[in-house]
Simulated assay, not measured.
Amino acid sequence: MFDDDGKINPSIRFPALAAHIWFCEAKSPYTGDADSPLLGIHNGIAYYLLFNGILGDKTVNGGNILTTPILKSLPPHDGPKIIYGEGCRFGAMRLKKEQIMFKHIPYDIKAR
């Protein structure tokens, strides 16, 4: 999953990372189609992954940064959200208001 520098291996694609994150968070196998940034909802928490152009932007880092337009484009969830991405442009107050816990790729992804 990771290279020697701790970065995500460039050959990793969205479905593999989605399955890994889902298993780490929900402790169950991922059964989604890996065609949406919303991985699923577990115990009332929605899990999202912004990675590898899942939002249709195939540019480098395209859609991997949590911004207002990206948040608006995500499938909605009226409750707590955990969003994995490469960066976040929201401050602590905005994250709290939106009920978001942001987790940074690759640092907040468990290797085991």
Rank of each mutant, 00 (worst) to 15 (best):
M1R: 01
M1I: 04
M1E: 05
F2W: 13
D3W: 07
D3G: 05
D3S: 00
D4S: 13
D4L: 10
D5M: 14
G6D: 11
I8Q: 00
N9A: 11
P10N: 05
S11D: 10
S11W: 08
S11R: 08
I12Q: 03
F14N: 05
P15L: 04
A16F: 02
L17Y: 01
L17D: 02
A18R: 00
A19M: 07
H20M: 04
H20R: 08
H20T: 11
I21L: 13
I21M: 05
I21S: 05
W22A: 07
W22G: 08
W22F: 09
E25H: 15
E25L: 03
E25F: 15
E25A: 14
K27W: 03
K27V: 08
S28K: 14
S28V: 10
S28I: 11
P29K: 12
P29C: 07
T31C: 12
G32M: 03
G32N: 06
D33K: 14
D33L: 08
A34H: 11
S36Q: 09
S36M: 01
S36R: 01
P37W: 04
L38G: 01
L38D: 00
L39Q: 01
G40F: 10
H42D: 11
H42E: 12
H42K: 12
N43L: 15
G44T: 10
G44V: 09
Y47K: 09
Y47V: 14
Y48P: 05
L49A: 00
L50W: 06
L50T: 06
L50S: 03
N52I: 02
N52S: 12
N52Q: 03
I54K: 00
L55C: 14
D57M: 12
D57R: 02
D57G: 11
K58T: 07
K58I: 08
T59S: 15
T59H: 13
V60F: 12
V60Y: 12
N61Y: 15
G62S: 06
G62T: 09
G62A: 10
G62D: 07
G62R: 08
G63S: 10
G63Q: 03
N64F: 03
I65F: 14
I65R: 12
T67E: 05
T67N: 01
T68N: 02
P69E: 01
L71I: 05
L71T: 04
K72H: 09
K72L: 08
P76C: 01
H77I: 03
K81M: 13
I82V: 15
I83N: 00
G85T: 07
G85R: 02
E86G: 13
G87Y: 11
G91F: 00
M93C: 00
M93V: 09
M93K: 10
M93R: 07
R94Y: 04
K96T: 14
K96N: 06
K96F: 09
K97N: 11
E98D: 13
E98N: 09
Q99F: 09
I100P: 01
F102H: 12
H104T: 12
H104D: 14
H104V: 07
I105Y: 04
Y107R: 05
Y107G: 14
I109H: 05
K110R: 01
A111G: 08
R112V: 07
